[in-house]
Structure formats: structure tokens, C-alpha cells
């Protein structure tokens, strides 16, 4: 790493990517074993893979952080990072898009067809006579049995408010950082992942409630599938985002960020806003409508 600041930065060989690839492989391999009921190899491999990945994250990002603080990164490198993060978020948008697409398709087209509307008249007549559709539904065979939905104006509303305020807190922290006001930044920054964790906690409670009292499960036909997969993947993203925010908070506390250079902070903030926006979509399309 002998380059001077300002030069184009070509990092020399790094061992982290290959460690990441191996970790990812072992993780996935373990996951596949586990799903196929091969135990204890499955869970063990999964855990080993996860451990390697965590080790890798500390190592890789630690190295990047050190290099960044040494001022090795030019504005151009910074811009590459920014583009990378933006396109990564775009790919995440498309991933959620697949599940939203599944929701819209099932709800807007498939269920009405099964119920005999338009194009589905014959299907309803010959295969599912008597099925009237509607939403929520667990299909003609009422798979998973009678269930109730989560009322939007309870916990989900609170969760919406929590996430919205967490977007505000992270923005305040960002402004404080740009003003160079560390003392104002830190509390707002720490508040953000706390709110995130609160969100996850409430969602976990909501899930438990759904399983124990509402009989709403993954198995509850297409409604259960779309409900849990959409909110579940979102919850996973909130969890990851919270972890990232803690790391950022720690680094901010250690004084890693300057007024001008704090890409890591911004990347995580973007990610957090993205998670927030996805939630608004969920709140609207999964809970309210």
C-alpha cells in the first residue's frame, strides 16, 4: 500500500475476497444440508460458514477503514464506492420487486381468476366451483385453515412511526456530522439502530401473535406466503441495517469520520432509507389495502 494520496488507488492483493468466497460456500452448503435434514453436518457447516463470514467482514472492512483513514482513497475511489452502493441498492429493489410482483399478480389477477372472473371462468367452473376469492385468501382449499390478518392500526402503525423516526434520527446525525458537531451526532446516531431493533422486536411479537392467536402462518395459502416472505425479508434487512448502524456508530465514536469524508456513514444511511421506503410499500400494500 505504498501509494501516495491523490494517486489512483489500485489495492494490491487481498486475502479477504477468497475468504469471503469460501465462507459463503460453506454457509450455503451447510444451509442446503440442513434443509435436507442432514444433521448435524448442516447446522455445523452453516455455523462455520457464518463464523468465517463474520471474521471476513471484520477483516475486510477493517482494512478498508484503515486505508480510508490513511487518506489513500481519492475522490474517484470514493465515487466508485458510491456507485457501487447505489447499484447494490437498486439490485435489492429488484429483489423486493419480485415479491411485490408476486403479491400484485396473485391478488390482482390470479385470485380473481380462480374465483371465476373473466379469463378464469372455466377454471372456477370445473376445478374450484364455489370459490369466491377475495383478499385475504388461502385459496380454494383453504390451506392452513381459517386465519385472521394483522390489523394495520396497531403494531404495524407503531412500527411505521418507529421506522420513519429512525430515518429522521439518522438524517439529523448526518447533518451534525457535516457540521462537525460530534456531540450532537452521536446520540442521534445511536438512537437509530435502537429504533431499528425496537422495530424488529415488535415485528417478532407480531409474528408470534400471528402464529399463536390468528392462525396466520407461512402455510396460510398465498396470503400467508406473501405476507411472511415480504415482511420477513424486510425484517431481515432491518436487522442487517441495524447491525451496520451499530458498526457505524462505533466508528463514529472512534472518530473515523470527518466532515468531508464519511462514505461508510452515507452508504449505511442510504441503505436505511431504502429499508424505510420498502416498509412504506409494505405498510400500504400488505397491511392497509
Amino acid at each position: 500500500m505504498s501509494q501516495q494520496a491523490g494517486a489512483y488507488y489500485v489495492p494490491h492483493g487481498s486475502r479477504w475476497p477468497i475468504i469471503a468466497a469460501v465462507g459463503l460456500f460453506i454457509f450455503m452448503w451447510g444451509a442446503a444440508h440442513w434443509l435436507d435434514g442432514i444433521e448435524p453436518e448442516g447446522p455445523l457447516l452453516l455455523a462455520a460458514g457464518a463464523a468465517i463470514l463474520i471474521f471476513m467482514f471484520f477483516g475486510w472492512f477493517g482494512e478498508v477503514a484503515r486505508e480510508s483513514m490513511k487518506g489513500l482513497y481519492s475522490d474517484q475511489v470514493d465515487l466508485s464506492f458510491r456507485m457501487g452502493m447505489m447499484w447494490f441498492i437498486f439490485s435489492e429493489v429488484m429483489f423486493f420487486g419480485a415479491f411485490f410482483g408476486a403479491l400484485f399478480y396473485s391478488r390482482g389477477l390470479q385470485v380473481p381468476w380462480l374465483a371465476g372472473e373473466g379469463h378464469g371462468a372455466l377454471t372456477n367452473l370445473y376445478l374450484f366451483r364455489g370459490y369466491t376469492g377475495g383478499w385475504p385468501t388461502n385459496g380454494p382449499d383453504a390451506i392452513g385453515g381459517v386465519f385472521q390478518t394483522v390489523p394495520p392500526w396497531g403494531e404495524p402503525l407503531i412500527n411505521t412511526l418507529i421506522l420513519l423516526s429512525s430515518s429522521v434520527t439518522v438524517t439529523i446525525a448526518h447533518h451534525a456530522l457535516r457540521d462537525g458537531n460530534r456531540r450532537r451526532m452521536l446520540p442521534w446516531l445511536v438512537a437509530t439502530p435502537i429504533l431499528g431493533m425496537l422495530f424488529v422486536f415488535l415485528q417478532a411479537r407480531e409474528y408470534m401473535d400471528a402464529y399463536t392467536h390468528l392462525n396466520l402462518t407461512l402455510h396460510s395459502g398465498i396470503y400467508g406466503a406473501t405476507f411472511f416472505m415480504l415482511t420477513g425479508f424486510h425484517g431481515l434487512h432491518v436487522t442487517l441495517g441495524s447491525i451496520m448502524l451499530w458498526v457505524i456508530a462505533y466508528r463514529a465514536w472512534r472518530g473515523h469520520f470527518s466532515k468531508e469524508h464519511h462514505f461508510a456513514f452515507e452508504a449505511v444511511a442510504w441503505y436505511w432509507h431504502f429499508v424505510d421506503i420498502v416498509w412504506l410499500g409494505l405498510f400500504l400494500f400488505v397491511y392497509i389495502i
Binding site: 380462480l114 372455466l122 377454471t123 367452473l125 370445473y126 376445478l127
Partner: peptide, 11 residues
Amino acid sequence: QADAIPGQIHD
């Protein structure tokens, strides 16, 4: 040709 799809009547 017409696909024969479970859960659907294709006429």
C-alpha cells in the same frame, strides 16, 4: 399445443 397446468383449465 396447449399446456396442461395443475389448478387451471386451459380451453
